[in-house]
Simulated scan of single mutants.
Amino acid sequence: MLIDAPSLYFRAYFGVPESAAKTSDGTPVNAVRGFLDMLATLIRTRRPDRMVCAMDYDWRPDWRVALLPSYKAHRLAPTGGEAVPDTLVPQVPVILDVLAAIGITVVGAAGYEADDVLGTLSVTQQAPVEVVSGDRDLFQLIDDDRGVRLLYVGARGVAKLEDCDDAAVRYRYEVPANRYVDFAALRGDPSDGLPGVPGVGEKTAARLIARFGDLDGVIAALDNPRSNFGPSLLFKLRDSRDYLAVAPKVVRVALDVPLPELPTALPLAPAAPDRLLELAERWNLAGSCRRLVDALATRG
């Protein structure tokens, strides 16, 4: 099980009210508590024997920005870096401390996003592999032949996640998982600053890929007078040539991130129980830590 840690702890932060999860001195721990409860639920219901949590060591890599300057530009803080809620920032080190005490591996890579780490692990780790994320771009990692699935955490949360294979992507978007990158480039994604082709939504993007096979086929057809795009769509696609030349490279998850050898075995009990107890008491996490430890133990 590969965990998109930023995706989950952001959802935890906004899903658990600060007023419901504080320490004795009033420090919010809502993201920590929600994240640990998500892990407990995943372990209890999916029963993985291996787990790695991926982190963003670079949430907006220079190489993606060089290709598409608008990439995540709307999420830049005035002082630079990612705009993150002030009360979330100090909770991330607490999450990492708890994961270390449990014995769950955390990894990131300089110059890469968590998505890239997940992508690399999805093709280098022994299958079956389940990737857990609320990021739609990771639909591209689904590979029925290798046994790679996406457990998509949308608005309904981990308890009601969507277990997605290639058929699920086809049902949802009318394209196969291995064409999701082309589909996303055409459609665009405002959450990532990906403009897409003006006027091309999901239905049109899917129809174009179904007709021409992939984005290269769409672009090649622009100069074929028998392609019958219609004048408006033809103009928009031709006007977006430069964007379409780089967008797939931005959307496509790296599969070759240099990562060290990783211990992936998920323990049946905490690696450092005294440290975990200390953290639970300090941060008022007794209930969440107990649920996580119990979930680990039930796999034995």
Rank of each mutant, 00 (worst) to 15 (best):
residue 109 A to N: 06
residue 141 L to M: 10
residue 170 R to V: 12
residue 162 E to C: 01
residue 112 Y to E: 06
residue 118 L to Q: 08
residue 127 A to K: 01
residue 101 A to L: 08
residue 86 D to R: 13
residue 88 L to P: 03
residue 109 A to L: 08
residue 130 E to S: 12
residue 79 T to G: 14
residue 88 L to E: 07
residue 129 V to C: 08
residue 94 V to Y: 02
residue 131 V to G: 11
residue 193 G to T: 02
residue 172 R to F: 00
residue 190 P to K: 01
residue 101 A to Y: 04
residue 153 V to Y: 04
residue 93 P to M: 06
residue 98 V to F: 01
residue 202 E to D: 14
residue 77 A to H: 12
residue 181 V to H: 07
residue 118 L to H: 07
residue 162 E to D: 15
residue 91 Q to I: 04
residue 115 D to P: 08
residue 141 L to Y: 02
residue 153 V to E: 10
residue 159 A to N: 12
residue 195 P to Q: 10
residue 77 A to F: 01
residue 72 K to Y: 11
residue 136 R to E: 14
residue 125 Q to R: 12
residue 142 I to K: 10
residue 84 V to Y: 00
residue 130 E to V: 15
residue 179 R to E: 05
residue 203 K to C: 02
residue 201 G to S: 07
residue 189 D to N: 14
residue 96 L to S: 07
residue 167 A to C: 07
residue 96 L to E: 12
residue 76 L to F: 00
residue 81 G to P: 03
residue 170 R to G: 09
residue 72 K to M: 10
residue 153 V to N: 05
residue 80 G to V: 05
residue 91 Q to K: 04
residue 87 T to C: 01
residue 169 V to C: 10
residue 119 G to F: 07
residue 174 E to R: 15
residue 184 A to D: 07
residue 159 A to G: 12
residue 178 N to S: 13
residue 75 R to G: 13
residue 153 V to R: 02
residue 168 A to Q: 10
residue 74 H to K: 12
residue 80 G to F: 00
residue 169 V to D: 03
residue 176 P to I: 00
residue 109 A to I: 11
residue 169 V to E: 07
residue 74 H to R: 08
residue 74 H to V: 03
residue 121 L to Q: 13
residue 193 G to H: 06
residue 171 Y to F: 09
residue 80 G to T: 05
residue 138 L to P: 04
residue 93 P to G: 11
residue 79 T to P: 00
residue 185 A to S: 15
residue 100 A to F: 00
residue 179 R to D: 01
residue 157 G to N: 12
residue 172 R to L: 12
residue 166 D to Q: 09
residue 172 R to M: 11
residue 108 G to Y: 02
residue 190 P to L: 03
residue 158 V to Q: 08
residue 150 L to G: 01
residue 200 V to L: 11
residue 195 P to R: 08
residue 193 G to P: 02
residue 164 C to G: 04
residue 167 A to L: 12
residue 113 E to H: 05
residue 128 P to D: 06
residue 181 V to S: 11
residue 137 D to C: 03
residue 130 E to D: 15
residue 180 Y to H: 14
residue 81 G to W: 00
residue 156 R to H: 13
residue 105 T to C: 11
residue 89 V to T: 15
residue 204 T to A: 06
residue 162 E to V: 13
residue 130 E to K: 03
residue 160 K to N: 13
residue 112 Y to N: 03
residue 118 L to I: 11
residue 201 G to H: 04
residue 127 A to C: 05
residue 95 I to T: 04
residue 197 V to K: 01
residue 207 R to H: 10
residue 176 P to S: 05
residue 203 K to V: 14
residue 129 V to S: 04
residue 124 T to S: 15
residue 84 V to M: 14
